[in-house]
Design a protein around this nucleic acid. Structure first.
Length: 506
RNA sequence: GUCCCCUUCGUCUAGUGGCCUAGGACGCUGGCCUCUCACGCCGGAAACAGGGGUUCGACUCCCCUAGGGGACGCCA
């Protein structure tokens, strides 16, 4: 037994009190003395780097983050890259970037699961030596046939355990075996899920899962269990597509003699049509939401309300979310993703945002889309314009579009609707108004309004009959912030110039 | 096919046996405000999947049916 790995010799497995080399504490929580101790809260987000961070993953990360923060615990990040063929560095970078953008900072360094492969394999060998696992020499064809037959006979397609008790001497030559867990065949396994409640599955529904591939590398199922144990993960919060995995993992934890973390399987997010949101079915990466002009705080708030509620509260700050979040508020039904509500929330957060930040984002956007380089004056003008603009936009993109006229070069191009606001009569009226404006000493919103109103009265027309032509001339559009605000923000020179442009055009 | 999970307005949800003539939010819609568009404010339509129980009393508890979803890999 001298060759036993630290895990196989761990007190949790054989009752001896040997140091557990894998953990800083040198001790496993599952030793009898410690099992009743409350564990510090440690959650983890464990994405596989096969693509961007999609919206479902983002919500899982958010819940893990909130739960850890709420309980004063630790939120860890683990990259599940044991599938070497499908994992890419770009995906890792995209996931990290996505989490940062969302404001979900993780504690400590990100763990790359594959780095622990040798250790994981060692744990499997310990199980082998302890008689809790065995070699299986089935070929893929054999397995395939087994599954096909089981399905045809109305049984759950799974491995039948044919090598479980077979003499290894019968092993076919030249076939590298996989290592399978010798899972209990009778009885049942129950997990007390923090979201789903108690869920029980008969053990004969679960087959002997592969722990080590024929090439000796660990499978996800093994690595997850070992890593969760090593990282002292206390709560596994993940999508409920992992619910059945929880049973297998429970069996593994038991075979290893380790305490199992608590499980919380949250329902998946569905697309607007009710079907599972997948990468080819409407699931966008979080960076796409940024491109679409959504604010991270709005996305966080929206995601939080998808499957979680705190009474009638809708707009919830991050501070409140941390104070209120717990697993008992998580529902069990899948939710559909609804852009209309996200828009509404985003509009709310835009209105609440500081003008300076908004102007910065708009400038960035304008430069990115129109290649427009803005000088300090233009940036300042944008910032002053935000007050009126932010009431009228649901996204940063929309905000930028609406702001564009403020920094556009003269002469302005009129939209079709704007052109219709400038009939001959309107242009003539602009011509009569301009000298009055020129004579104005005070170019403030209030003074401008007083002057234009007086002009309308003198012309015996409604305010709209002069305000609309002004709007068209100044903004090039039929809809804009209040026209006096527009003039004030534009300033005297630019305003007069734009009016002159339209006036002389007739 | 087998196993597991789910089911309140179109959508997200509140509701833990009587407080429910089922509340809020988004969306839709009528109106107010008004220089346009928004914002804001006031109002409206809109749901307990169906069927059985349990109970003095079920949206709330149990069972069945239907529908939806997920899992069944040497993927994660």
């Amino acid at each position: 037994m001298a060759s036993l790995s630290p895990y196989a010799g761990c007190p949790c497995l054989d009752g001896q009190r040997l140091p557990c080399m894998a953990r800083p504490s040198g001790m496993c929580y599952d030793s009898p003395a410690m099992s009743s101790q409350p564990r510090p809260v440690v959650t983890r987000f464990a994405p596989s780097p096969t693509g961007f961070l999609h919206i479902g993953g983002a919500r899982t990360a958010l819940f893990n983050w909130l739960f850890a923060r709420h309980h004063g615990g630790t939120f860890r990040l683990r990259i599940e890259d044991t599938d070497r063929k499908r994992s890419t560095e770009e995906a890792v970078a995209a996931i990290l970037e996505g989490l940062r953008w969302l404001g979900l900072e993780w504690d400590g360094a990100a763990v790359h699961q594959f780095a622990g492969a040798a250790h994981h394999a060692e744990v499997a060998r310990g199980l082998l030596e302890a008689g809790r696992a065995y070699h299986c020499y089935c070929t893929r064809e054999e397995l395939q046939e087994m599954r096909t037959r089981a399905r045809a006979e109305g049984r759950s397609p799974r491995y039948d355990g044919r090598w479980r008790d077979r003499d290894p001497a019968e092993a076919p030559p030249g076939v590298p075996p996989v290592v399978r867990l010798k899972a209990p065949r009778a009885g049942e396994t129950t997990i007390d899920d923090l979201v789903q409640g108690p869920v029980t599955v008969a053990n004969d529904q679960l087959d002997d899962m592969v722990l080590l591939r024929a090439d000796g590398t660990p499978t996800y199922m093994l690595s997850v269990v070992v890593d969760d144990h090593d990282m002292d993960v206390s709560h596994v919060i993940r999508g409920d597509d992992h619910l059945t995995n929880a049973f297998r993992q429970t069996q593994l934890f038991e075979a290893l003699g380790w305490a199992r973390p608590e499980f919380a399987h949250i329902p998946l997010i569905h697309g607007a049509d009710g079907a599972k949101l997948s990468k080819r079915h409407g699931a966008l990466g979080v960076e796409a939401y940024r491109e679409l002009g959504y604010l991270p705080e709005a996305l966080r708030n929206y995601l939080l309300r998808l499957g979680w509620a705190h009474g009638d509260d809708e707009v919830i700050s991050t501070e409140q979310a941390i104070a209120w979040f717990d697993l008992d508020g998580v529902g069990r039904a899948p939710a559909r993703f609804d852009f209309a509500k996200l828009d509404s929330l985003n509009g709310h957060y835009i209105r609440a945002a500081a003008d300076k930040d908004l102007a910065g984002k708009v400038a960035e956007r304008l430069q990115a889309t129109a290649g427009q380089v803005l000088d300090t004056g233009a940036r300042e003008r944008l910032q002053r314009a935000m007050q009126g603009l932010k009431l009228r936009a649901k996204t940063i993109n929309e905000l930028a579009e609406n702001a564009a006229f403020y920094v556009a070069a003269r002469p302005l191009e009129l939209s079709e609707k704007a052109a219709r606001l400038l009939p001959e009569e309107g242009r003539a009226r602009l011509g009569r108004l301009r000298p009055l404006l020129e004579g104005l000493d005070d170019w403030s919103e209030a003074a401008l309004e007083a002057q234009v109103r007086a002009f309308a009265e003198a012309e015996d027309c409604k305010l709209g009959q002069i305000a609309q032509p002004l709007r068209a001339a100044l903004s090039g559009s039929h809809a804009s912030p209040g026209i006096f605000e527009v003039m004030a923000v534009l300033g005297r020179g630019e305003s007069l110039g734009r009016i002159a442009d339209q006036q002389s055009a007739s």
